[in-house]
């Protein structure tokens, strides 16, 4: 369908790379966005015994293991807050990023049956993916709230402004990088073998299991990673480990905007011949 308006005129021409109309089209198809997200959430935990609890178990187990080895045995500093809550805050954002990234990069291939049969703006699919990851994030946040209560930590009022910004950065970052990889994945399926290692390595250049301050003057390089700003500032506002570093947030915003631009560009380029290749 060209568009749900009955009298709409559709003109089909050789595809241009990018058009403002594309964004409008996604808005027209927003109901499909809802339905795809609903489908993914509904299907995900079918035939599992504990269902949505899985969204909590993963970061929780990681938190316990990291707390024992890095916090307890290796005695990695944690900016004067208990290590478990320190690492859990980092993991929460990290997992939103890494789960979104890996799923977005495989999204085109996973949905090829639909893509080669029906028309709709293709960007709907990767956007859906990130939306469903936000649901996991919300579920896993319950544990964080519980831990804050347990450790008597009150988040700063700035959290109301900063956390949404950080979430948007995370989403843009994962979406951008994911789209880029999705575009490559269409032709070179090597991506799906490399990506798990890539994500494992990325966690080490992001201050998830250690505080950003540990890096000394290398922390400048660390800041180039958009997720560094996200994790550091999330801790700053939620746990009061430091002041909000607006410069770092600014760098992250620029970084993820660039990533998103490259990602969408590559995606749009592949979109044109995708249905012919798979």
């Amino acid at each position: 369908m060209s568009s749900p308006q009955p009298t709409a005129i559709t003109v089909i021409r050789p595809k241009k790379l990018f058009h403002l109309k594309d964004l409008k089209e996604i808005w027209v198809y927003r109901e499909l966005l809802y339905f795809f997200s609903w489908r993914d959430l509904k299907v995900r935990y079918k035939q599992t015994m504990i269902g949505a609890l899985w969204a909590i178990i993963q970061p929780f187990v990681a938190m316990v293991i990291f707390s024992v080895f890095f916090g307890g045995l290796a005695k990695i500093p944690s900016d004067n807050v208990p290590y478990p809550i320190f690492v859990y805050t980092g993991l929460l954002f990290w997992q939103l990023f890494s789960d979104s990234l890996s799923e977005v990069s495989g999204a085109l291939i996973a949905n090829q049956a639909i893509i080669t049969k029906v028309y709709f703006p293709r960007l709907i699919i990767p956007i859906t993916t990130v939306i469903t990851k936000f649901v996991d994030f919300s579920i896993a946040s319950i544990i964080l709230a519980g831990m804050m209560f347990y450790y008597h930590i009150t988040p700063s009022w700035q959290a109301i402004i900063v956390i949404p910004i950080l979430l948007i950065i995370t989403a843009m970052c994962a979406e951008g990088l994911g789209l880029f990889l999705a575009a490559i994945n269409v032709k070179y399926r090597d991506v799906r073998y490399i990506l798990p290692y890539f994500i494992q390595l990325l966690i080490f250049i992001t201050p998830v299991i250690y505080p950003g301050s540990i890096a000394g003057h290398y922390s400048k390089f660390l800041a180039l990673n958009p997720m560094t700003g996200v994790v550091n500032n999330a801790r700053a506002v939620l746990l009061g480990t430091a002041q909000v570093n607006w410069l770092q947030i600014g760098i992250s915003v620029v970084g993820c905007a660039v990533l998103l631009f490259i990602g969408v560009y590559m995606f749009k380029k592949v979109e044109r011949y995708f249905a012919d290749v798979v």
Binding site: M1, P4, P6, T7, I9, T10, V11, I12, Y119
Partner: peptide, 10 residues
Amino acid sequence: EIILRGRVGS
């Protein structure tokens, strides 16, 4: 070029 004057279902 193709011009479609209406909603298309396939």
